[in-house]
């Protein structure tokens, strides 16, 4: 978790999945849109698009425009732009290396999990400790990757003196001013890396302190302690979930899996179990278009129920945890 993250006790968070109409958003916001700001940087060029915001039941003209502000910083500060691009190249390369390690670790774990019980042995369950070690190896690869990414990001921010750079500071000041009188911030989905980069650049956790936050899809992933990328049936590759990096750490206790019913093979018990076991004890939550998870008064709840993946390979509806 980000060391400077806002404490979860300070903030009410609602996590949603993809929103193709404004129905659920309307219920969550309960009509309180007067003191609202939106962050739609994940939409990239479509950021702040009034039509798209309207589809989600959100007003126009209250977007913080982090994507465009980031473009403005890049244009005005070539040294920063160059360093940012260099960092992104390094992170992409690091992700490729992580996937090499992950593929092997996942293959070992998967093979051992299918190891048959052998009644001829003195201990028919001889494989169990090996399975646990294999799982620990996967978790180690995940953890080491997230830590390594964080190292590179920290080095980058320290080297660039981000907070002191003129154009960054100016944008941060403007944003702080924009946030006066804002009670609630809605973070939409989109490209999770684009979103993370802009959130870090403009120190969004500081802006969100004391606000109520509604985060959809990639927005929920970016604010989580760990960003987990997932898709069980990509056109190429084994479809192992990946740890991208540490998220903004605005909350604990949930791995958000937006649109999970479509992106995951929920009927494949082995895959479901592996995913749940890998991140246990943090619950992996399927955030479909009609589901929500809300952190309030120190605990998580879901008024209409939300699906959690179980280590047995099923998905069960939960309402509180």
């Amino acid at each position: 978790m980000n060391a400077e993250a806002t404490s979860v006790a300070d903030i009410q968070i609602t996590l949603l999945g993809p929103q193709s109409n404004g129905e659920l958003m309307g219920r969550v916001l309960e009509g309180n849109t007067d003191r609202l700001a939106t962050i739609s940087a994940g939409w990239q060029e479509r950021e702040a698009d009034a039509d798209e915001l309207a589809v989600m039941g959100l007003p126009a003209d209250v977007d913080l425009e982090l994507y465009h502000r980031s473009d403005a910083v890049m244009a005005a500060d070539p040294d920063y732009r160059k360093a940012h691009r260099s960092l992104q190249r390094s992170l992409r390369e690091l992700r490729r290396m992580y996937n090499v390690r992950l593929d092997h670790a996942m293959a070992s774990w998967s093979t051992l999990m299918d190891w048959p019980v052998n009644e001829d042995l003195a201990d028919p369950h001889l494989a169990r400790p090996e399975q646990e070690r294999a799982m620990a190896a996967v978790r180690a690869v995940d953890r080491e990757h997230a830590d390594r990414v964080q190292e590179l990001r920290d080095e980058f921010e320290a080297a660039m003196g981000l907070a002191e750079r003129e154009h960054v500071r100016r944008q941060r000041d403007e944003l702080a001013e924009r946030m006066n009188g804002v009670d609630t911030v809605v973070v939409t989905g989109g490209h999770v890396v684009v979103l993370l980069n802009r959130m870090r650049l403009f120190d969004v956790p500081a802006l969100l302190a004391g606000k109520s936050v509604v985060a959809c899809s990639a927005g929920a992933m970016a604010l989580a302690p760990t960003v987990v990328l997932f898709h069980d049936t990509p056109p190429w590759g084994p479809g192992h979930a990946e740890v991208l990096e540490h998220g903004m750490g605005l909350f604990d206790g949930v791995i958000p899996l937006p649109d999970g019913s479509r992106r995951l093979a929920l009927s494949d018990a082995r895959r479901v179990a592996r995913l749940a076991q890998r991140f246990e004890p943090t619950p992996c939550l399927v955030l479909d278009s009609n589901s929500q998870a809300r952190f309030t008064r120190g605990h998580w709840e879901s008024p209409d129920g939300v699906l959690r993946l179980t280590t047995e390979g099923t998905s069960e509806e939960i309402r509180q945890w």
């Binding site: 993809p18 994940g42 989905g189 989109g190 490209h191 999770v192 890396v193 899809s217 990639a218 992933m221 990328l229 898709h231 990509p234 056109p235 990946e242 937006p258 649109d259």
Partner: peptide, 8 residues
């Protein structure tokens, strides 16, 4: 495509 990165 941006399958792994985009969650609308």
């Amino acid at each position: 495509g941006p399958l792994w990165m985009v969650y609308e």
